[in-house]
Design a protein around this nucleic acid. Structure first.
Lengths: 361, 361
DNA sequence: TTGAAAGCGCTAACAG
DNA sequence: CTGTTAGCGCTTTCAA
């Protein structure tokens, strides 16, 4: 694989390598020289080696993308968004799947460091202990879909604690109209592109309560703490703790959680599933327990995946723009996070189909 | 972002850089030196820069992964398989989504070349004109899920034609038991990891004919020519051409094709959808036209995606091991394709659920 | 066993 | 405007 190098082009064009470099990167050169170089380069089918450039510039172009699971259609959409933006910019994307595991995520971050990839878009699984070092090391990171989990409140909170504290959202206090929450880490601001979970969940809860439901359960993953928070907020004081159930990312875990929820609280009349894998599990568990949707239990699922419509009944969903989230995140990370890193909140939409009905019991 | 370099380690350990390099790559060194270097490296948290190494070795580690659409759950599974293998090997993966478009695919290949990524796993959309140059340039490529389309038979077939001809499968002639088909390009063998489409489709067809169906349609994408070929073969001479319909990769196109098929041939009683996006579209189109599944029309879909079970009725599918296909392909490409590139055929399985019934009309 | 030195292909000073 | 030159961090001869 004998590559054509810049030197070959230079020789063939009868100029110095620097000139070739300049011409190809849009620097100044006499029209005449420029033309000649371009012609020779084209004729030789010269492709500048990213290797050489990267080493010289001590950084790799492109970006890393770390997400929990490509098998989850929503993350597939998100990834497509990122790839679309990257392709438009001609940048490569290194993708890693974390399995929603902080340790694997940390390893993947390490790999990116090794590759000198200094921009990364992450649907974070790990907390400050993973992301703070990365940001400190000079990585431009943009979070997508969710923020790092808040650390368990620990006594004698040292460095990590303090920072992590700052990294989380400014709580659930209602922001002023149009104002986005902000992720901040001591002096290091990490931008994020998120769906407007607060609005999304609130709309769903209101819809459900409007149908007469009172014992509404929430099935979520720990990672999406904002959704649970929004659920609690939307329900006011009326939230019963055992109606909030968590599952890990896996389908098995999701099924177990859903099934367990139905059995522990047979009196519930509606459930909000905080993700499409969770929703899938909920449908399955309900069917297994002979609970009819929506007669016995109403269901609202996060993510408007294509099969939501195929389900029977078609699922009422909280749609979030996965593709856009990815695209915007990629834009942000390519732009270096921007001077004043803002958090972008993208709208959600409640799409009413057939999985919710009036309370019947 | 001041990286620790090999020089720093060398100085701190009081040895030359070459020694550090040797120690870290398992070369020979006195136990004493080795220990010291290792200690210093660990203490400094030294991570060798892939950039330096790659430039020196004139190749990037890791691999590229090119597939049509990450939004398609099957490709999500395949990607997860590739990523799993890559992670185990500590190798990075550059992912590109082609949208099932040869031109975009070619561009992405170009990007990989620019990055000096010389191993690539591809679910090919383009033909020999894309892949031959890549292989010629020294890339190790492994095809997954399908092979490049055969070129339209052209007169005066020149270089490309001849090669492409060789690159396709050895036709549909039944291979001896256990013998895999082979992809071969003049002197250049491209390994591939595929599902056993022949068996998969044949099983489905037999199942359907066993239920009494005679007018069975096949809805596919052009890319999976092996599946159509298998369909034709399984049906023997009885195949009616207008019962074979193609769609592009997009959901819209799939829906249009399915809907068109039902309207053009209202007499058909069963359809095999050659992919989950196609299956999804078929269900939608059938519903829109008030065709009941399976009373009015039976459906077998390729890909055992999670929602197949949630559909109503639950879909009978031809399952293929997406994860394994990806994993095996990654193994193969990391191994350099092997000396004698073989094509790996992974088993499919007909999973009978509720979308097929006896012929009723 | 070890160190010095020569690049890999490229860009960015710095001269001319 | 253009050529020369010095590395970026690493591996790999080649001597010592």
């Amino acid at each position: 694989m004998q590559r054509v190098t810049i030197k070959d082009v230079a020789e063939a064009a009868g100029v110095g390598v620097a000139t070739v470099s300049r011409v190809l990167s849009g620097g100044s050169a006499s029209p005449e020289t420029r033309e000649r170089v371009l012609a020779v380069a084209a004729q030789l089918d010269y492709r500048p080696s990213a290797l050489g450039r990267n080493l010289r510039q001590r950084r790799t172009g492109g970006m890393g993308l770390l997400l929990p699971d490509l098998t989850d259609s929503f993350y597939g959409q998100l990834a497509e968004g990122v790839l679309a933006c990257a392709r438009a910019a001609g940048e490569p994307v290194m993708v890693g799947s974390t399995g929603d595991d902080a340790e694997q995520e940390a390893e993947l971050v390490g790999m990116l460091v090794e590759q000198s990839v200094d921009r990364v878009i992450a649907v974070p699984s790990g907390g400050a202990d993973v992301w703070l070092p990365a940001v400190r090391a000079g990585m431009t990171v943009v979070f997508a879909d969710r923020l790092p989990p808040e650390p368990a409140p620990a006594a004698g909170g040292g460095d990590i604690d303090a920072l992590a504290d700052l990294m989380r959202l400014d709580g659930v206090a209602p922001p002023r109209q149009g104002e986005a929450p902000r992720t901040t880490a001591r002096g290091l601001d990490v931008p994020a592109v998120l769906a407007d979970d607060r609005a999304g969940v609130r709309t769903a809860v209101r819809y459900l309560t409007g149908l007469g439901h009172r014992r509404i359960a929430y099935l979520g993953v720990p990672g999406h703490s904002r959704r649970v928070a929004a659920f609690r907020e939307a329900l006011g004081g009326a939230v019963e703790e055992d109606l909030i159930v968590y599952a890990e990312g896996s389908r098995d875990s999701a099924y177990a959680a859903a099934s367990g929820l139905f059995q522990a609280r047979p009196d519930l009349t509606a459930v909000i599933a905080g993700g499409n894998v969770l929703g899938e599990a909920t449908v399955l568990a309900a069917r297994e327990l002979d609970l009819r949707v929506p007669q016995d239990v109403s269901l609202v699922m996060y993510d408007d995946v294509p099969w939501a419509e195929l389900c029977s009944p078609p699922l009422t969903v909280i749609a979030q723009p996965g593709h856009d989230i990815g695209y915007r995140a990629a834009e942000l990370v390519l732009r270096g996070g921007g001077r004043r890193p803002r958090t972008v909140l993208l709208p959600t939409e409640l799409i009413v189909r057939g999985s919710c009905g009036p309370r019947r019991r």
